[in-house]
Design a protein around this nucleic acid. Structure first.
Length: 254
DNA sequence: TACGGTTTTCCTGCTT
DNA sequence: GAAGCAGGAAAACCGT
């Protein structure tokens, strides 16, 4: 993928919304995300598996818990199943974090107050490059601590350009606090978490393995550069940043 | 001001 | 040989 001088980023992204999108079905990548046309119901009983995971992630953030301390695979369930779990089930599934999760889900079941304001996003389907990737994983007012979910490109298979594969490992230990605003891994995460809003830029290749594919690498780099006020950003630089220090970084995309 | 973490930039080597 | 990716090294940047 290359962005020629005559090809604007807007045109690329816009075209991706249309029938020209080379991945219109998204059957592989979007499996967990199509349902992400989010909580029309705020009731956890109606959550998808993915929403359950987002809730888990949010709880970990809120309580400053290392995301690696619970086996996410134990929560490969939808909201209905989640709500049917007993206190002991939570203990078994999440150990010492279980009571926190149980308490949270119990409150949510009764209050129905859990709102992730995706509805706002859906009401504004147009792309907004001034803030292209709203942090929809976290309700307004909640501070997301990215260091809880560090991201790590690990040994990634080489792939012929323009399809660049990257893979991510499970979460790693935590460092506190976002010192520099948006991190690159947050940026990537948000693209992956918002396929409806940023179609055709990156797609999941194998979500269970944490492998994704750059479809428009230079377009992603341009967006990143715009976010960082760096007009000279290229995919080469962006990819270098992604490769940097993989032992430190990991990611919690499932 | 010093320090640490993250990102950017430049470069070389390897693979296809 | 060309293209593209991986990774080393150093500098820049930013928050504490």
């Amino acid at each position: 993928m290359s962005v020629t001088t005559s090809t604007t980023l807007d045109s690329q992204v816009t075209s991706a919304w249309g029938p020209a999108n080379p991945y219109p079905d998204g059957s592989l990548v979007m499996a967990g995300y199509t349902s992400r046309l989010w909580p029309h119901e705020s009731q956890p009983q109606f959550w998808s598996k993915y929403q359950v995971w987002e809730w888990l992630q949010q709880i970990m953030d809120m309580h400053q818990i290392d995301a690696s301390s619970i086996p996410f695979q134990n929560f490969d369930i939808d909201g209905h199943q989640l709500c049917s779990l007993s206190y002991q089930d939570f203990i078994r599934a999440a150990g010492s974090v279980g009571p926190i999760l149980f308490h949270s889900i119990t409150e949510l079941k009764w209050s129905g107050q859990y709102h992730v304001d995706i509805g706002q996003m859906e009401s504004k389907p147009e792309l907004d490059f001034s803030c292209p990737f709203p942090d929809v994983s976290y309700p307004p007012g909640e501070i997301y601590d990215p260091s809880v979910h560090p991201l790590a490109p690990v040994a990634s298979p080489r792939a012929p350009s323009p399809d660049i594969k990257r893979s991510f490992t499970r979460p790693h230990p935590v460092k506190k606090h976002n010192q520099r605003g948006t991190h690159l891994w947050e940026f990537i995460r948000d693209i992956l978490l918002n396929p409806e809003r940023n179609p055709g830029l990156i797609k999941w290749e194998d979500r269970t393995e944490g492998i994704f594919r750059f479809l428009k690498s230079e377009a992603v780099a341009q967006l990143w550069g715009k976010k960082k006020n760096n007009s000279s950003m290229t995919y080469e630089k962006l990819s270098r940043a992604m490769r940097y220090n993989p032992s430190q970084l990991s990611y919690i995309i499932y």
